[in-house]
């Protein structure tokens, strides 16, 4: 019993990271109908930004986080201008391929600048964690779960109770009408990309102390986050969170009970199962084609 609780805790922690990246996926998808295959690289960049500011430059942890958030927001905006904006009137395929190109570009730029060796990042707090009976609650996992919870609540507040949030929703539902009402559509999409990059960056900062910071970090997280968003129901915000947590728990349990080497396969097996049995995901509407 204690083992299961321990695994659940760990799974929820790692799942929360997937959920954050999946959330970024979903927000961009809803605003632009684009599936951003470079979303994972945002997390990788966030991790590296932390390493550079706090380890290499020796800045305080809080300042590192602050700088990372600002850099990520700026990066999201540049990403929008370079990768999405020139292709905004084109069909699905060119844009997807362009984001794949961006993902290669980012990965290899970092690889060229920083080399292939993984680096470590210390946790947010020095304190190792608490024991709850036989279950050990690692502090970094606690931080991840807490931060994810706070972010989800903040995001809920932002979209439900601020005017800018409403405008962003309006843009994702009907761009043409939004522009007719005088809403700055281009600006709102820019904001969506910036915010998604920040979400990805935070996920990277959070997960960096657990996994090593390496150029492979992005792809590893992104694929599972993407699987999470499909399992949850593509384009659905609560679905992305639920999907992330499910995958985190499933792969933790699977690694323990079934096979460690195949740990990374469980997310995909789960995805296949969903696509065959319930392609619309947990919360999604039935997929249908409009004439």
């Amino acid at each position: 019993m204690a083992i299961i609780l321990q695994l659940l805790f760990t799974g929820l922690g790692i799942g929360a990271v997937y959920a954050l990246v999946a959330l970024g996926f979903v927000l961009i998808y809803r605003a632009t109908n684009v599936v951003n295959f470079a979303q994972g690289q945002f997390a990788m960049l966030g991790g590296y930004c932390m390493v550079i500011t706090t380890v290499d430059l020796g800045l305080p942890y809080w300042l590192g986080i602050l700088i990372t958030l600002v850099v990520m927001a700026g990066f999201g905006a540049i990403f929008n201008l370079g990768v999405y904006y020139p292709l905004r009137h084109r069909s699905f395929l060119p844009v997807v391929i362009s984001t794949i190109g961006a993902s290669i570009l980012i990965t290899n730029l970092v690889l060229g600048l920083y080399g292939p060796e993984p680096t470590t990042l210390p946790g947010v707090i020095d304190f190792p964690g608490v024991s709850l009976g036989a279950v050990f609650l690692d502090s970094q996992y606690l931080v991840i779960i807490a931060v994810t919870l706070i972010l989800v609540l903040l995001q809920y507040f932002f979209f439900e109770h601020t005017l800018v949030g409403k405008k962003m929703q309006a843009v994702s539902q009907d761009k043409e009408v939004a522009s007719l009402l005088g809403i700055n559509v281009t600006g709102m999409i820019m904001l969506t990309f910036a915010y998604s990059a920040v979400l990805g960056g935070i996920a990277g900062v959070l997960v960096a102390p657990i996994l090593f910071v390496s150029v492979g970090l992005g792809a590893q997280i992104a694929l599972k986050a993407f699987a999470a968003s499909i399992i949850g129901g593509f384009g659905d915000v609560p679905g992305a969170i639920a999907g992330g947590l499910i995958i985190g728990v499933a792969e933790t349990l699977g690694a323990f009970y079934i096979s460690v080497p195949y740990k990374d396969a469980f997310a995909f097996i789960l995805l296949f199962a969903f696509l065959l049995i319930r392609p619309q995901g947990i919360f999604g509407e039935k997929v249908s084609q409009k004439a």
Binding site: L163, K166, K167, A170, A178, L181, G182, I183
Partner: peptide, 9 residues
């Protein structure tokens, strides 16, 4: 919210 956004201009 729909109506409110009409004043975005």
């Amino acid at each position: 919210e729909n109506i409110m956004l009409g004043a975005s201009n």
